[in-house]
């Protein structure tokens, strides 16, 4: 009995701060427009309607809005992720048939805590557990492409509809690409030494976290992720705000607008050598759309920058032969092109 009271006590301590902060968050979030109006018109005293005023108003409104959304979502996702680990994911994926495995692999790619610098040990660990490479690829494609930062930024800058479309098409690409790679039976294009690696897999640990520790994991991921990306977000929104009033509307429309069939492939080719996470690229995508680039082309560009990056390809080169890398890049590129065309020609938002 005493122990129960004790655990309840420590529970409420960990929950207390988020429970107090949440209403404050809601009040602040709902009043951002008023606050930014007040700052631009009463404190800096700019006259409404002018280019400069609207640029500054946009900036003062967007930065805290995106930051608030990020803090909330990263915190929640941080707690969710504390329920997953690469070891658990490996166990779940180990016994699944091809298509189910691809679906699960892509879904787990979203929630498993994973950083692309661990791609090699993860790949080796998956191969050793007998997970088909197609399923591993579904995981490796979904993990960087679909994440909470991309979701928040897309929702904040374009609305929830586009954010959800991005996530579902991203999942679709991860599942189908992995499934095709699995069907093609490309195991022979994995470097030979990979199959010789023996790991001490029985070294498993059964760490059960308390709710307090999970909440702490939420704080840690907010600190870690925001600490890394805040500067990109501010720069990105500043560029967006600047372009908002000054660059002519159809500036890029002729090159990458809806009328051009080669817009989508061109955007993908441009995206591959560029390396950025969602935080850096989405504000730029927002400017592109603002300046006349069609939605499908802009999404294709973004997916290409995030999912097909040269540094990751170089990392994967250690465990894959070039044939498999070429196939991987082509299949994902074809998937992205398809999504781009579907948006440009069939979806009118």
């Amino acid at each position: 009995m005493k122990q129960k009271i004790l655990s309840l006590n420590s529970l409420s301590k960990g929950l207390l701060i988020p429970l107090i902060l949440f209403p404050a968050w809601i009040i602040l979030y709902n009043n951002l427009q008023n606050i930014s109006d007040f700052i631009t018109e009463n404190i800096i005293q700019l006259s409404p309607g002018e280019h400069l005023t609207e640029t500054i108003r946009f900036f003062i409104f967007e930065v805290p809005k995106v930051m608030l959304l990020l803090v909330l979502i990263i915190f929640i996702v941080g707690i969710i992720r504390s329920y997953f680990s690469t070891e658990k994911t490996r166990k779940i994926l180990g016994s699944k048939s091809l298509f189910t495995g691809n679906v699960l692999g892509a879904l787990l790619g979203i929630v498993t805590p994973f950083c692309s610098c661990s791609a090699i040990p993860l790949f080796l660990g998956f191969v050793e557990a007998g997970i088909p490479i197609g399923v591993t690829f579904s995981f490796l494609i979904a993990a960087p492409m679909i994440n909470e930062v991309a979701l928040v930024l897309l929702a904040g800058l374009f609305g929830w509809k586009i954010a959800i479309i991005y996530i579902s098409t991203g999942l679709f690409i991860a599942i189908i690409s992995g499934w095709i790679i699995g069907k093609l039976k490309l195991e022979k294009y994995v470097a030979e030494w990979v199959y010789k690696v023996k790991s001490n897999a029985n070294c498993s640990e059964n760490e059960t976290l308390t709710l307090n520790k999970r909440i702490k994991a939420g704080y840690t991921s907010v600190k870690e992720i925001l600490g890394k990306i805040w500067i990109y977000i501010i720069i990105g929104i500043a560029v967006g705000a600047g372009a908002h009033g000054y660059v002519p509307e159809n500036f890029l429309g002729s090159l990458l607008g809806e009328g051009n069939w080669y817009g989508v492939p061109l955007a993908i080719v441009m995206g591959i050598p560029m390396y950025s996470n969602a935080a850096g690229i989405i504000p730029i995508v927002s400017v592109l759309i603002d300046k006349g680039v069609s939605l499908g082309t802009a999404l294709a560009f973004m997916m290409s920058v995030i999912a097909l990056s040269l540094p990751e390809i170089i990392i994967l080169k250690k465990v894959l032969k070039w044939q498999l890398i070429v196939i991987f890049v082509s299949i994902v590129a074809i998937g992205i092109i398809t999504v781009g065309y579907i948006f440009n020609y069939f979806v009118y938002l």
Partner: peptide, 13 residues
């Protein structure tokens, strides 16, 4: 060395 890292059964560095 990645092979030695794997000997410890670690998948996330």
């Amino acid at each position: 060395d990645i092979q030695r890292i794997m000997e410890y059964g670690v998948m996330t560095t």
